[in-house]
Design a protein around this nucleic acid. Structure first.
Lengths: 216, 216, 216, 216
DNA sequence: TATGAATGAGTTTTCATTCAT
DNA sequence: CATGAATGAAAACTCATTCAT
């Protein structure tokens, strides 16, 4: 779909090397950004952390913002990858959705810091890069739209078509909520409990049958 | 409850004046932070925006972070105030909850930029200030816990006590979602539609009755 | 005439102070630029030389190029001032021109380093500033056009009107030549000799002698 | 005469190759220096422009300043070559001088950008290289001294021997003036007009006319 | 109290040059 | 000989904070 990840120019020709060095940069920068935030991290720190001299680092990027973009892009593609894999295993319909949600939440747990990072620093990206990142977010969200639509099609989910998109976003947000409300939820709920409750909340409404459901 | 809004020292003794000047600072800084973010706003800009000289401004704060704290605190207390007022009018039980949610969402709409700001910049606060802000957030959340508990008590809401807290957070987050997913939702849903759908989602699960309802 | 010396903004309000500090900056920078050239002089050196901290210096300029502009403008206005004064005393007609040329050459001698500087660094100015400087140069040149015209009018100079401008430029350039060919001329000619010869060269052609010649 | 063009060492032994590569370097660098100036041109750009890798380029030079020297030397020898050729054709005496001046001015027109370049960047050369370049300039100037002397000898030019040198410099400078005052002269004079006027100015003084004048 | 000029540590970024392959 | 990735010193510029008036 959105096949245009803003290409960041590099002074270095060797493709392989560029890939490798950028992975280094991303790894180092991710940690630092998570720990200190984008603005409080200096380029020299990033260089040191990823084992390059600043000079060398700047052979692979054009500006500090490029590093942020690289990091955001990486996180999003990682999320996408993991989610895609999870969804592939999940199957379809109601059952599939249940598993998909659980997988999504699991991914959120694993990527907790990174998701938080994206939420807090996306705004620091330059316009163009930011809209790419948001498009990516929407793309990921649409995975859930697909599952919901298939569930509607096979009759295992009851849902007004106009609310499909909203529901997909709800699923995304309730997953992310596990990362950015950790400080409030962590003491009271385990990921399993959290998943069970939120799944019930989301799925009960889409129940095709007329009788009893339980929450816990 | 949380009666300890980190006291920010001022060089100026006159209480009245301090209050007045800080209101000026908050108003100016809010706009700037929303527009450009905390880090990209300079103290000079803040001073200019709020009609003080930098020297004067620094008579009322100790550091730039203090301004952020002041702003966050202001936004939270504004949110709290509005929500409290809304909840006071909302009444109790199921009916009350419906109205409370609608009010909450309306407040989110009104305070959209500010809510977003808090979400993105809270991390920039120094430890102590940050935990105060988070505590405040939890406090606001607990308003909904109260309503839910009262609903359970009067039998108009069915909900496992262990999920009360989670539900309260869900309500908060689904409200905030209207601000930080605006870019994705705005085209497809009006605030009214959004409110109706999310309310249905949230309340259906707590329905004490045994029979079918619709979403739209 | 060209009443628009590109106004360079300053962070500091106090006009007097701005004037004073900029004079400091110009003085320090002039020396350094003459000695090392614009590009090989660092902003820190300029600041040190003029007794300001870099921070302070940057309160009065926006960029290093501004310093160059300030310096060029200063030199030009100094040249203009001295030349104007000289020309005012010079009187009119053939006599006046002789004295004007001598004064001009004297000014070139005095301002030798600065004239050289302008010749070598004007190109480093940003477009807008450069064209202002060139306009100024043309303006100064036109002083000589005026004298020539007056000489033609009063009959003490014979010159085809179409060559007035060229002659004015010649006078300018033969003056500047004393600065940028110093390395070659200094050993062989004193300023007096130089002046006498060049004046003869320039004026003989314009002699209203009994057996009139024409130029074209 | 000045047979000591500062030898620039090269890592490469093959003479032929060194010559060839340096010609490449000069060609690329000339264009860039004219367009952007020496300091604003990077070594990478030079290498790219002349089709070498930086590594390779540095096999043939020792520093960026070497490139400037190479360029200046090239321009000067080109000027010398063309002027020599022109002067050879020009003949001697008054007639010859007239033609020589016209040829010189024509060369200035052709080499306009390069002459300008030399005037602005010579100062950026390291001491030794600079004095070589200046010596070269003097050498070229002395061509005109020769012509003048021959003119004096054959009686077609009247000129005090002590002013020969000055006149030669004047001829040089009035030619160069066509390049560095282009911005002011171009609109008003064609090269032909310019040449005619300046030649008249220069030669009239040296006229062996019937009622001899002297220069003092 | 109010002001705003002064400060300089700290930031991002560039680029001439080297050297292992 | 040719290559181009690596280097890091050095550059321009910023900005939170202070303090004399």
């Amino acid at each position: 779909m959105s096949r245009d990840p803003k290409r960041i120019p590099s002074m270095v020709k060797n493709r392989r090397l560029v890939e490798k060095r950028r992975r280094q940069i991303i790894r180092g920068a991710c940690d630092l950004f998570v720990r200190k935030g984008f603005h409080k991290t200096t380029t020299r720190e990033i260089a040191r952390e990823c084992g390059l001299s600043i000079g060398t680092m700047y052979e692979y990027i054009q500006s500090k913002e490029d590093v942020l973009y690289l990091v955001c892009e990486y996180i999003h593609s990682e999320l996408e990858k993991r989610l895609k894999k999870a969804l592939a295993e999940a199957g379809t319909g109601r059952e599939g959705l249940t598993r998909a949600i659980a997988q999504h939440f699991k991914v959120m747990e694993e990527m907790s810091d990174y998701v938080l990072l994206i939420y807090q620093e996306t705004k620091s990206l330059p316009r163009e890069a930011m809209s790419y990142v948001l498009r990516k977010e929407e793309e990921i969200t649409s995975f859930f739209e697909e599952i919901l639509k298939r569930g509607i099609a096979d009759g295992t989910l009851i849902l007004d078509p106009s609310t499909v998109k909203l529901m997909a976003h709800n699923i995304m947000v309730l997953g992310q909520m596990w990362t950015f409300r950790r400080w409030a939820l962590n003491g009271d709920y385990s990921l399993e409990e959290y998943t069970r409750c939120q799944t019930a909340l989301l799925l009960d409404r889409m129940q095709p049958s007329e009788h009893g459901r339980e929450m816990t």
